[in-house]
């Protein structure tokens, strides 16, 4: 665990200093997307990485966060910050309900039932125009602002403001995840992932711990939805779609599931690779698919395992021991 703490702190320091060094708006945009995806992928990692269940319904919680933010600020006129709390809570409540129903099933059945929930929700959002505005969605979602004593202190006209909000969300997410993973509860979760029957026999109730992980994951997915809605300023039904689901799965798998830094690495690598592949034009996505297959085949435990692999061959300093989180 301490092996993960040091690089994380170094990363945090670098992240805080980053806007002071680089000032390009496009670069800032990419870094914001990296941070946003870090929160989203980490939230899925709590479920898939630690309790080992492949949830394909996670985009639904992200979508609920997006729509809660859009509807509360545009239709109900609430403040952006209140909407943040509600977006997270709404997703968590949905996580509780869906988790309560689905976590009784495992393996394949869980994969499919979570997918079914997300699809039902997406189709309802498209068809129920009166409430959700249908396929066109919500444009002009307001930017947040920080008002102190009647004066606008921060108006979020600059990308740097969004960057630091995203960074705060990342820190909260990773901290909460860390607390969860290294609590008695988290250790129990890992036990469930590794051997559910044995875990049960020593008095761990897999359902209870899985529920906690699921609701926690949903909450942070909702928060990332809130951020997305206000940063992009537009949400449509595509936030419930398979595209986001696939993106976050790829990020945790490429980075390394079941680790804290994994999704961070995955979010950064995938965002940058997709962007750098622009030179390839039409074959961009074909190349991306190919790279993804190679990455899974050669690093099935993700890129976090690369130092271990190198170390074992003596290409990297340090003992040849492998450590897992």
């Amino acid at each position: 665990m301490s092996s993960q703490r040091l690089p994380l702190l170094a990363l945090l320091a670098a992240a805080i200093a980053l806007p002071l060094v680089f000032r390009g708006e496009y670069f800032m945009h990419l870094m914001i997307m990296v941070l946003f995806y870090t929160v989203l992928a980490s939230s899925l990692n709590i479920v898939t990485g630690y309790i080992g269940q492949l949830s394909l319904g996670h985009a639904a919680f992200f979508g609920i966060g997006c729509y809660a933010a859009a509807m509360l600020t545009l239709d109900a006129g609430w403040s952006v910050w209140t909407a943040m709390i509600i977006a997270g809570l709404a997703a968590a409540v949905a996580g509780f309900v869906i988790g309560y129903i689905t976590l009784r099933l495992d393996g394949h059945y869980f994969v499919l039932i979570t997918l079914a929930f997300a699809e039902v929700l997406r189709l309802v959002v498209i068809n129920w125009e009166e409430v959700t505005r249908g396929p066109l969605g919500f444009p002009n979602i307001p930017r947040p602002s920080i008002v102190l004593g009647g004066e606008v202190m921060v108006d979020f006209s600059s990308k740097t403001h969004f960057y630091y909000v995203a960074l705060v969300l990342v820190v909260i997410t990773l901290w909460a995840k860390h607390r969860f993973v290294y609590s008695a509860m988290g250790r129990a979760s890992v036990a469930i992932r590794e051997n559910p029957r044995l875990a049960q026999s020593v008095g761990i109730d897999p359902f209870y711990y899985s529920m906690v992980a699921f609701v926690l994951g949903a909450f942070f997915a909702g928060l990332s939805g809130w951020f997305y809605a206000h940063y992009i300023s537009y949400v449509g039904p595509d936030v419930y779609g398979f595209g986001f689901m696939v993106t976050m799965l790829i990020m945790i798998a490429v980075g390394g599931r079941g680790t804290i830094v994994g999704p961070v690495i995955g979010a950064a690598i995938i965002t940058i690779v997709v962007e750098e592949l622009r030179f390839a034009r039409e074959i961009r996505l074909s190349l991306f698919g190919l790279l993804l297959m190679l990455s899974i085949l050669f690093f099935p435990r993700g890129l976090v395992s690369v130092p271990d692999l190198l170390r074992r061959r003596g290409w990297w300093p340090g003992a040849g021991k492998t450590g897992t989180a």
Partner: peptide, 19 residues
């Protein structure tokens, strides 16, 4: 390429307009 997806189109726009 924006793929008609809001987030990807925004990224493409940032690249074109800023970079």
């Amino acid at each position: 390429d924006g793929q008609c997806k809001p987030a990807d189109s925004v990224t493409a726009a940032e690249k074109l307009m800023v970079r």
